[in-house]
């Protein structure tokens, strides 16, 4: 137990994000079996109905597939990890730029600041 959840986002979506991130990080490989709904619920300390929704959502996104009588598996698709990784990168960059613009930094400055921060362009 001991997962902490943000208030502003449904818990089932936060678990979707967590599992997706684990796939991107290679902690879960294509074809790996996910824990049963009950096991996952115990691990996360959440209601099994919530995990049910998480798995349904992951299935809708083609990230996992349910095999009858066998359980839920990470989709056996070689491009999946790469694709999910790209999506996540996009999202992080998008929110970063949004926050910078909110505090009045324009895009050109953002690039300069990033280069400086990363120790380039000096």
């Amino acid at each position: 137990m001991g997962e902490d959840f943000q208030a502003s986002k449904p818990i089932y979506m936060q678990i979707v994000d967590k599992i997706t991130s684990e796939i991107v990080q290679g902690k879960r490989q294509p074809g790996d079996k996910l824990p049963s709904v009950r096991e996952m619920a115990v691990q996360m300390g959440v209601n099994p109905n919530t995990v049910q929704r998480t798995y349904a959502e992951l299935e809708r996104l083609n990230i996992v597939e349910t095999r009858r009588g066998q359980g839920t598996f990470v989709s056996d698709n070689k491009d999946l990890t790469e694709e999910l990784g790209r999506n996540m990168q996009d999202e992080i960059i998008k929110s970063f730029i949004q926050k910078m613009e909110e505090i009045g930094v324009d895009r050109k400055q953002i690039v300069t600041l990033l280069q400086q921060y990363l120790g380039e362009g000096q």
Partner: peptide, 30 residues
């Protein structure tokens, strides 16, 4: 909180609210 499907709020002997926990987060961010 993370265990519940539904939350029912009681205040001085009356029900003052009933919500699905996930709907609360989804629709009101609470």
């Amino acid at each position: 909180e993370s265990l519940l499907d539904e939350a029912i709020a009681i205040h001085y002997g009356t029900v003052i609210g009933q919500e699905s926990v996930e709907t609360l987060r989804e629709e009101q961010g609470l």
